[in-house]
Computed example of a mutant assay.
Amino acid sequence: MNINKYLLLSLVLLMGFGPLQTLSQPIKAHANAGVPTATWLWNTSTIAAQGNEILSFAGNNQVKQIYLQVNKDIPFNTYKTFIQKATEKGIEIHALDGSPQWVSSKGSAYSKEFFNWVGNYQKSASQTQRFTGIHLDIEPYLYSGWNSKFKNTVLAYQNIINHAAITSEQLGLTFGIDIPFWFDEIAYSNTYGKGNLANWAIKTTSFTTIMAYRDQAAGGNGIIELVRNEVQYASSLGKPIVIGVETGKSEEANLVSFYEEGAAHMYSQLSLVKSAYPQPDVTFAIHHLHSWMIMAP
């Protein structure tokens, strides 16, 4: 495995998480053969002025979960209004956060600040205004220590995830994380035992979202093959698994995203993936909400 290739790819994708443009596209329902059940919403400020449009699109496209990045500058009441409306549509909102810096020496402080915010918010909100899950996107391979202090960085990552799992349970929230499709090739041997990070992550969380960012279902570099091990791990552990795909423009390669091909092609490929993995606990997520909303038919 060429780790540097995956680091570059992940960095390019991470850099695409900037502010969303105005959501001015008409509300539409795609020919959703794959039935994605989750999506990421990175620009939390849009839930104030454009919350109704976001939720209309999500409802029309059978979204059941939105991973909503926590922005501490946004008032609690804005979240309450948005989550209340989402609840009425049967859409769960999961509190999203995390960065490569979470595996640094200061990582526990970032984690503590996030969970303190979530805990305080939950106390202030009614049942129908609360988050129903935690979702972390840490990407430790983008931290400098991944190359210079690999074993220590992997252990720091596992410590953060393990602590987050415990804290999420204490808050009564489901706990999910994003991992790249190649974590099944990353071995660890430390206080958590021996194995590969994909299996460990699936075992430790409520559910795991695999960043299987490819625009074809079949073939050796297609989605079906890339997630095969993760689907097997999840099945053996009795855990749900979510297959994530990309819709934003990527500078890395056309094969990364469905941006060039459009929605019809994406859904045809997701239908093939679903045929390969028909289990009800295998679902999909679209990265990310805004690029999906403005995606070509």
Rank of each mutant, 00 (worst) to 15 (best):
M266V: 06
N61Y: 09
N159T: 11
I202E: 00
A29M: 02
G262C: 04
S291Q: 14
A198N: 00
A165Y: 00
Y6L: 02
G133H: 08
T22C: 03
T209Y: 00
A285Q: 15
T204F: 00
L55A: 02
Q129F: 03
Q170E: 15
Q232C: 00
G219Q: 07
R130G: 12
T87G: 07
L173K: 09
G34Q: 06
P19V: 07
L23Y: 12
A234N: 03
E252N: 08
L155N: 10
L171Y: 09
G238C: 10
P297F: 00
T209R: 00
D137A: 08
L23P: 14
L13S: 15
V242R: 14
A109Q: 13
L23A: 07
T39V: 13
H135P: 03
E92A: 08
L23T: 02
S45Y: 06
S24A: 11
Y259N: 15
G107E: 05
L270H: 06
T204N: 11
S235E: 11
K106I: 04
Q129M: 09
G133W: 08
Y67F: 15
H288W: 12
L14T: 13
Y121N: 02
K249N: 15
N61R: 06
N196D: 14
V63L: 15
Q232E: 10
S126C: 02
N43M: 07
G238A: 06
N2K: 09
Q21L: 07
T204M: 08
N190S: 07
G172C: 01
V245H: 04
T78W: 01
S268N: 15
G98W: 04
K203L: 03
L8M: 08
Q65E: 13
G107T: 01
N120V: 00
A38W: 06
D137H: 06
M295H: 13
T128E: 14
F131G: 09
A296P: 11
V245F: 08
K194E: 13
T204L: 01
F82M: 07
L68R: 13
I74L: 14
T174E: 10
Y233W: 04
I91L: 07
H94K: 09
L226G: 04
